[in-house]
């Protein structure tokens, strides 16, 4: 695959949330506001790209038998780095994302990319894969959280977008809304991709 294809792959064909459907927990939980969704997306990009780089650099050095524990240690380290940096520099976002920041370490996406790509490819390609998959994750997060914040609060980024007379659909912000809206979003994506094939 050429470099552009690697990048695009993560956004469309193998979109982590809409197609692969990994790392659902964070997706459902933090998308109550557009700002939080974007914050989480960027955090995931950081951990994913960072661990992809290191694992790719060390791929000749890490023995096959212990590669999974090695991946886990490296991914956990990057997760902690992001956690500490957010705790210090983006405190409000840190408080909003809560337990889901350390939970980035169990986001199947990152381990999957390490195993499927970074361990077998050069650093440059691994960076692009990380950025591409991360971008795909971010795009899906933006879609989901903007719908939820818009319907459930009438705002985007905390700014009122709908007239004051709008009665917010509280359910969109609550847990059921997350499940249902994501389900419908995936249904829509399925529909669009099937139409494209036909």
């Amino acid at each position: 695959m050429n470099k552009l294809d690697i990048f695009k792959n993560g956004i469309t064909k193998e979109n982590p949330i809409l197609v692969q459907q990994v790392g659902m927990c964070a997706t459902l939980a933090v998308t109550t506001s557009l700002l939080n969704g974007i914050g989480m997306g960027i955090a995931v990009i950081a951990v994913l790209t960072g661990s992809n780089i290191v694992i790719s650099l060390l791929r000749k050095f890490i023995p096959d038998e212990v590669r999974i524990p090695a991946f886990v240690i490296i991914i956990a380290a990057f997760t902690t780095i992001v956690d500490l940096l957010m705790h210090a520099y983006t405190f409000a976002l840190y408080q909003a994302l809560g337990v889901f920041i350390p939970l980035i370490v169990v986001n199947c996406l990152i381990l999957a990319r390490a195993e499927a790509f970074a361990f077998k490819n050069g650093v440059v390609d691994s960076i692009i894969d990380g950025l591409g998959m991360g971008a795909g994750y971010l795009v899906a997060m933006i879609l989901l959280s903007s719908v939820r914040e818009f319907l459930g609060n009438g705002t985007l980024f905390g700014i009122n977008v709908l007239p004051a007379s709008y009665e917010p659909m509280m359910i969109a912000i609550q847990p059921p809304g997350a499940f249902i809206i994501l389900g419908l979003l995936i249904g829509l994506v399925n529909y669009l991709s099937r139409r494209k094939k036909a």
């Binding site: 059921p176 809304g177 499940f179 249902i180 809206i181 994501l182 389900g183 995936i186 249904g187 399925n190």
Partner: peptide
């Protein structure tokens, strides 16, 4: 898709 809606 429908699983998620059902879960919802």
């Amino acid at each position: 898709a429908i699983s998620l809606v059902a879960a919802g």
